[in-house]
Design a protein around this nucleic acid. Structure first.
Lengths: 225, 225
DNA sequence: GCCGGTCTGTAACCTCAGTCACCTTCGATC
DNA sequence: GATCGAAGGTGACTGAGGTTACAGACCGGC
């Protein structure tokens, strides 16, 4: 595939995922497309980690990224997800010269991202107000999400949080019990046990790597309290 | 006291607490001092709450603010503290037009703050890069703090977190057990129980509204694990 | 002094959730 | 169809932490 075509596709994808760049003056957009690196990370790959310094500000084009904390004993808890159309503010904070965050970013599916070099990132932040707004907005959202998470972990029971998670993930969830446990910061056995209790109540149907919601209302009601 | 004197004092205090405004051009600094409202909130007062829309961006000059989540059953957990020289990014996020955060801000001591009106806040953010950096920096710090908190709540035992808290709060802590419980998101009885166990180990001395650290090293060692 | 509220100590009890151990089931691969 | 690893089921046990219910200690005001 000729480069010109690839470049045109990349531009379309970028603008589709990040409408904010639609307002960026032509020359700067060209520069962004020219200087940013297109990266692919296979599912399960590590995008960034506690120790690693960041080499750019990643804009996620395709695929989802899990940002999570890991305990030494192997347990983990999901802090938030970075979806296509979002950037990684941890790297942003890192680029702006703050303490590095000790969280890990894992590709949930195959991830395509555009890595904006530090110099260009800083220039965009300085000169392009909409981009600044965009980055600010993400910070705000993340902070709010993580604050909610603190509340949930501190005050809610695990069955409530699991019920919420199931409702949120839609009518059919394709995931192992281990994955769900990893989102909640718990362990497989407990999630299995709780799922079984949901099943005996007729709220869900359990199959290998698949959970089907039969009574979302009851689950939702169980979740919020 | 004549207004001119008060104004001079206010300027000095503002620049002392917020060195970032030292770089602000004279006329804009004057405008800031003229338009911003000086507010005082007595200890225990509510600075902002889930529902309340924010009427300005508060810069804390004196006193500390606790930002916490509250559970319906009366339990609470401290998310972070806003000290003199810091601003309330919740209000910032609110001013930048994001979803309002359902957290409450409580004056820990008597608080003096300067409330920057929305219009001026937006102008500063747009035109004054150092202020932007300052606000960004606070976002980054808060996010990092709250992410650490998630990890602590999810994976650490309460005695560990309590030990850390005690060490962090210095050699003599003047606080009720209830206050400590409120920071940790627990209840008084448990904190009392744990403190007693620390006491029998010779790590602390307990008195009414006072905890004296006798063996900070052991406490610290107990904390990180 | 007496009386109120606040702070603390403490015991009995209970529940949620984590750990351990082991087994079964399923699916892919040789 | 034998084998192996991943996924899931299940039970026994344990422990951390929350709840309830008091009682005593301290401190202020009257």
């Amino acid at each position: 595939m000729p480069d010109a075509l690839a470049a045109a596709q990349l531009r379309r994808l970028l603008l589709e995922r990040f409408p904010v760049f639609g307002q960026l003056p032509g020359p700067q957009l060209e520069r962004l497309l020219a200087e940013a690196q297109l990266l692919r990370v296979p599912a399960g790959g590590v995008l960034f980690d506690a120790t690693q310094p960041c080499r750019g500000f990643p804009l996620v084009l395709e695929g989802g990224v899990r940002v999570a904390k890991f305990a030494p004993n192997g347990r983990e808890i999901l802090l938030y997800r970075v979806d296509p159309g979002q950037g990684c503010i941890l790297s942003g904070g890192c680029l702006l010269g703050h303490s590095d965050y000790s969280a890990r970013g894992i590709a949930e599916e195959d991830v395509t991202l555009l890595s904006v070099p530090p110099a260009l990132f800083h220039q965009l932040m300085l000169e392009f107000e909409p981009f600044r707004r965009f980055v600010f907005g993400m910070y705000g959202e993340r902070l709010a999400e993580v604050m909610e998470l603190v509340e949930a972990v501190a005050f809610q029971r695990l069955d409530e949080r699991l019920a919420q998670l199931l409702v949120h993930r839609g009518p059919v969830i394709e995931a192992t019990h281990q994955k769900l446990a990893d989102e909640l910061g718990s362990v497989r056995e407990i999630v299995s046990r709780l799922l079984r209790s949901f099943e005996t109540r007729g709220w869900v149907k359990l199959e290998r790597e698949r959970i089907t919601l039969l009574d979302p209302k009851s689950l939702a009601a169980h979740g919020r309290l």
